[in-house]
C-alpha cells in the first residue's frame, strides 16, 4: 500500500449529501479490471459526462481550476451504499489521495484506509467552511498532514482532526495489514482451539447432502 504522510494540493468541493458509491462508479464498470486504460474516466461517470461522452460543464471536476484535484471536500455520508471498493480505486486512479468529510459511509471509510487514501473527519461546520473557501477561491490548495493531524485551509488556519492510531500507523508506513495479522497466527490458532470446545456446535454442522 502506498503510504500517506502529507499532501498539499488542489481540492474540489462536493456539496451534495449522501453521495453513494453507485454514483462514484456505476455498476456497469465494476467488471472492468483496475488496470483498464482510462479507468479514471469511470469516476462519477454519469454525472460527469453526457451520453455522447462530452463533459458536463456544471460538474466540479470538469471546471478548469478543480480539474485533477487530489483532495475532495464533501458532505455528510459520502460513500454510502454499496461496498464496492472500486469506488476507492477509481478515486485513486483519478489522483484523489484524501477525502475530507463530516461523515463517511462505514465500508467506504474502511476501504480508503486499505488503499492509502486518507479519510479526514471534521465537524460539519468546519467542512462546510472549507467548501465555501474552495468555492470562493477556485483552485486553491489545502494541506493535509497526517503526522500532525491537521488540515490547513487557504487562510492558513489549521483544523486538527482525530485519526485512529492503528490506522494512522498503517497509512504512514504503507503497512501490509495481512502480513501484520499473519504474525498473530499463534493467537488465531489458540482462539480456534478454544472455540472448538466452547462453540462445538458451530463446527459440528455439515451438509446433509
Amino acid at each position: 500500500m502506498r503510504p500517506f504522510t502529507r499532501l498539499s494540493a488542489v481540492a474540489a468541493p462536493i456539496d451534495l449529501p449522501n453521495v453513494d458509491t453507485d454514483r462514484i462508479i456505476p455498476a456497469r464498470f465494476l467488471r472492468k479490471p483496475r488496470a483498464t486504460p482510462g479507468y479514471a474516466g469511470f469516476l462519477f461517470h454519469d454525472v460527469r459526462f453526457d451520453a455522447d461522452g462530452s463533459e458536463r460543464p456544471e460538474f466540479v471536476l470538469n471546471q478548469a481550476p478543480y480539474r485533477g484535484a487530489h483532495i475532495l471536500v464533501v458532505a455528510e455520508n459520502f460513500g454510502c451504499g454499496s461496498s464496492r471498493e472500486m469506488a476507492v480505486w477509481v478515486l485513486e486512479a483519478y489522483g484523489v489521495r484524501s477525502v475530507i468529510a463530516p461523515s463517511l459511509g462505514d465500508i467506504f471509510h474502511q476501504n480508503c484506509y486499505k488503499n492509502g487514501l486518507l479519510p479526514v473527519i471534521l465537524p460539519a461546520a468546519a467542512v462546510a467552511g472549507l467548501r465555501r473557501q474552495l468555492h470562493a477561491r477556485p483552485g486553491t490548495a489545502l494541506a493535509v498532514d497526517l503526522e500532525t493531524q491537521t488540515v490547513t485551509d487557504p487562510d492558513g488556519v489549521a483544523h486538527p482532526f482525530e485519526v485512529d492510531p492503528f490506522r494512522k500507523q498503517a497509512l504512514l508506513t504503507g503497512q501490509d495489514e495481512i502480513a501484520l495479522t499473519l504474525s498473530q497466527e499463534a493467537a488465531i490458532a489458540a482462539f480456534e482451539r478454544r472455540q472448538r470446545t466452547e462453540m462445538g456446535w458451530l463446527v459440528a454442522g455439515s451438509p446433509a447432502s
Partner: peptide, 18 residues
C-alpha cells in the same frame, strides 16, 4: 456486516478482521 474487497482478501488469508 459487509466488507470491501481488501477485507475479503484479509479474511481469506487470516479468517479474522481488525
Amino acid at each position: 456486516f459487509g466488507i470491501g474487497s481488501s477485507e475479503v482478501e484479509h479474511v481469506l488469508a487470516t479468517q479474522a478482521l481488525w
